[in-house]
Computed example of a mutant assay.
Amino acid sequence: MKRKQRIILSIFLCLITGAFYAQKKNKQKVVKSITGIVKDINNNPLTGVYIYLDSVRTKVRTNKKGFYKLKIKPNTKVISAYSPNHGILSLSYSGEKKVSFAFSDDAKPLHRSELSEMGFGDPLRVGGTKVSFEGVRGLNGFNDIYQLLEGVFAGVSVTGTSINIRGATTSTTNFGNPTEPLLLVDNVPFLDISNIIPSEVKSIEVIKGPDAAYYGARGVYGVVKINLKN
């Protein structure tokens, strides 16, 4: 009798566990719709503005009223609006239902080739590990440098101020070294980058694998190179 009860209990627990993970998996797949308006410095709507999610171009463009609507995954970090005549604006995404953009008076034309060099690409293109932020407005939408890193580089995760570069090393032993990547600011090693303001950043390069061997044992967990604007 006790054995039968144990079997029934085991089946019950398996069903509950399976339902829990199924629910969790479904939540991760949830896609929501967001809307927004893109305008110029004079508050005029901009037509034909491309919308990018995490530096990847979507099929969505603004209509004649500057309005756009698209579906977005909950793990999206950055939304950008690109206009060849006005440049690009990027904003951190935190689950808002409406994200609008307004270009400033110093907005400048930006060719798509330049956009590609800055790390923005088409859905089938794989971007490089270096991203230039020159000409990019709206970086103050990121709360800090860590949110900028995690939002722009898909392989970078941040917990507090702890940075992890996915695939930086396959070693399970740290040989006495910290598991943090080597942080270089204008080629000078830094232990703490918390004071760096996102709008001060000129470019960021994430290096991992064999390319990081140049930096010796300290680069075994990858390298984050940050160049600041003058």
Rank of each mutant, 00 (worst) to 15 (best):
V56M: 07
I41F: 12
L149V: 11
F153C: 08
I145K: 03
F20Y: 01
P210T: 05
K64L: 12
T129S: 12
I79M: 04
N195Q: 12
Y214L: 13
R112L: 04
Q147A: 11
E200Y: 09
A107I: 10
I34H: 01
K29W: 00
S10A: 15
E117N: 05
T129F: 01
K27E: 08
P123K: 15
P210W: 00
V156E: 11
P189L: 12
V136W: 13
L91Q: 04
D40Q: 01
G209W: 00
M118W: 04
T76S: 12
I41P: 00
G160C: 08
R125L: 13
S171P: 01
A217K: 10
L46Y: 11
V56K: 15
E180V: 07
T161Y: 07
A22Q: 09
D144G: 10
G119C: 07
S100G: 13
A102G: 03
E205A: 10
G151P: 03
A168E: 07
N42M: 00
S90L: 14
S116G: 06
F103A: 04
T159G: 13
K98Y: 02
L110V: 03
P178Y: 03
K39W: 01
K98V: 10
K32S: 03
I16R: 10
Y146T: 15
N143I: 06
V131S: 13
G119E: 10
G219R: 03
T129Q: 09
L15C: 14
A212L: 12
L70P: 06
T58F: 06
D144V: 12
G155I: 05
L15W: 05
T173R: 11
N143H: 11
T58N: 15
I72W: 12
G141Q: 04
